[in-house]
Design a protein around this nucleic acid. Structure first.
Lengths: 345, 345
DNA sequence: CGCCAATCATGAATCGTTTCATCGCCGTAA
DNA sequence: TTACGGCGATGAAACGATTCATGATTGGCG
């Protein structure tokens, strides 16, 4: 493997100094036309590509923003990432997308990596229940924005969707349809999303004059389809089968759908089901899924914009923002209007 | 923003030389225990994080491998990426995942970015029909492996799945069930995947003594659900409605399913449908989807391993490999052997 | 007591850019 | 003729880590 051609080789080839080559690349207007052309020719001839590491060593920071999501297999996060990527690329920055898989250890590893890379900034949906990872990260001088997670005012920037409202939307919908109790299938409760949505459900129950014990809770170990299937199986083993199920996300809901359907239980006749996120596959499911839609792409874009504002030139005057977006209920077949007058057996 | 603490600050704090600090970090066994401890204390105290750019400037190459896929919204590629990521991380390398969105322009941009980053290697599923992007990239001294795309022997490494066989599997399945003609819904035909699967279909037709005109072809502009819905609508507009449809991937198939289903056409009774990739959502679809499964994770892992072998220490003896994996047909309801197999309702 | 080898620590050179103070040159005005 | 302003080009000094030839210290052994 031949040595990489550097700016020096180009300079020699073109018969100019290294400074001039650098100028041709970065501030072409400072260089006279004939010289510029000569240097450009040398660059093309030698196939010169500037070394980003050298550049960024001098500059002190890189031109990459990192994004750390909970689950890359979840189309919701892919959507969020798309929004962020667009905004970042518009600003001439690259995006490095990583997956913590809800694992605090992985999260810590990635944050360490980002620090070593002197990344421009980080967009992160935290996985660590204790918050220790992020607390440690704050000591680095790298700005970050919380995504899909609320932050105390003034501490840092965050963009989230009102999960309490979302949980309430879902629960109200089910209660309005006549159900008197709700089973909530969540992911790990150390995730704020799961906790907040539960809070929303409780609020809705209270609003309908129902006690807290009208809520049955099943906690799945992960937020994916397989975990949903397992949760669905557990659901079927309950002594009194519930009539209304609300899942913390669509992947869980799809898993539940499969397990329940396979057991010959009809949705929505025997069981009403509501998901969360309204991923594209929700509408193509065996029974089209009622779901709480989040403005995913918008969230990603907003988060990236906040980060850019914080790291940009005019960063001095930056004040931390806390943006909270509103969710929306998309009603489809799975929550069926018919409460199955006498559903229970 | 305070200046980043460097190795020099640590050295001063610990009262040793910079070389020693470097040794503590990289070859702790060369340093005496008391010194090591003192330096470590200084590192912790100052919150030192080494600069990856400086490190890599000296080393000449980075510790990141890049992966460029056609569509991050496609769970199939996410699966492939997972496999690659695992293998890379086992070798202590980071993965930078990027999305060309089937756009040759984006692809070129990303390849240029990778070159500037002096990435260790690249895993790429090409989007550029002309191959010009990759041809240009080969002049850089950066090794890469083709993923989900076959390569001429000896030119470079590639890992792919036999798409001709896959197309044939799907078509044979439909023909064996008694269908006499097949409609093939593909993505852009400049993608080798789409071309090869069509070749497989033609082979199957020939094998059943059917002429080439038994194949109707609809070309969708993209390989996603929305494009599938549009294709489904076009399908319904055909003068003679086909009885068997084979889609180049599951996203298209799910889209077709939605469009067809909405029009009141029963699957599989009125129309048999086969997809490709067997993504997780295929089995949770309105009608569980018959699909050609690819060993996605395996493909990603193998590709990463080949790349590591090529860039590793013992790289001298490396010979380019061409790995071709076999697809497998997963039969579910959508291709329905018997129209009687109605679920229960 | 003196010599040698082993063990640690040192600090200068290096990687490839960017930046900036400086210099040469030419034309113009005094 | 001299002084001056401005344009272009120069080249050395960072940036922060790694590496390596060299130097210092110690302990062992004859």
């Amino acid at each position: 493997m031949a040595r990489m051609v550097g700016i020096k080789d180009v300079a020699r080839q073109a018969g100019v100094s290294v400074g001039t080559v650098s100028n041709v690349i970065n501030r072409p207007d400072l260089v006279s036309e004939p010289t510029r052309a000569r240097v450009q020719a040398a660059i093309d001839l030698l196939g010169f590509v500037r070394s980003e590491s050298a550049r960024q060593l001098r500059a002190g920071r890189s031109r990459i923003v990192a994004m750390l999501v909970l689950d890359m297999g979840n189309p919701f996060f892919v959507q969020v990432a798309k929004g962020a990527e667009r905004a970042a690329r518009d600003a001439g920055l690259g995006v490095m997308l990583c997956n913590s898989a809800e694992d605090p250890g992985e999260e810590a590893d990635y944050l360490a990596l980002f620090a070593e890379q002197r990344v421009r900034g980080v967009l992160v949906t935290p996985a660590d229940p204790t918050g220790a990872n992020l607390a440690a990260f704050r000591r680095r001088a790298i700005p970050f924005v919380l995504v899909d997670r609320d932050a105390p005012v003034g501490e840092l920037c965050s963009v989230s969707v009102d999960d309490v409202a979302g949980g309430r939307l879902a629960a109200d919908h089910l209660l309005d349809a006549g159900h008197r109790s709700i089973t909530y299938i969540s992911g790990p409760m150390h995730l704020a999303q799961c906790r907040d949505r539960r809070t929303g459900v409780l609020a809705a129950l209270a609003g309908h004059g129902l006690a807290e014990d009208s809520l049955t809770h099943i906690e799945a170990p992960r937020l994916d389809v397989a975990a949903g299937r397992e949760a669905g199986t557990r659901l079927l083993g309950l002594s009194r089968r519930p009539t209304a199920v609300f899942c913390a996300n669509d992947l869980l809901a799809l898993g539940v759908l499969q397990a329940v359907y396979a057991a010959g239980i009809a949705i929505p006749q025997d069981l009403a089901l509501v998901g969360y996120d309204d991923i594209e596959f929700a509408s193509a499911a065996a029974v089209p899924l009622t779901s709480v839609r989040q403005p995913a792409e918008r969230m990603g874009r907003t988060a990236a914009e906040l980060l850019l504002e914080e790291t940009g030139e005019a960063a001095e005057g930056h004040v931390h923002q806390r943006v909270v977006l509103e969710p929306e209920l998309i009603t489809r077949q799975s929550s069926g209007r018919s409460p199955a007058a006498a559903p229970r057996s």
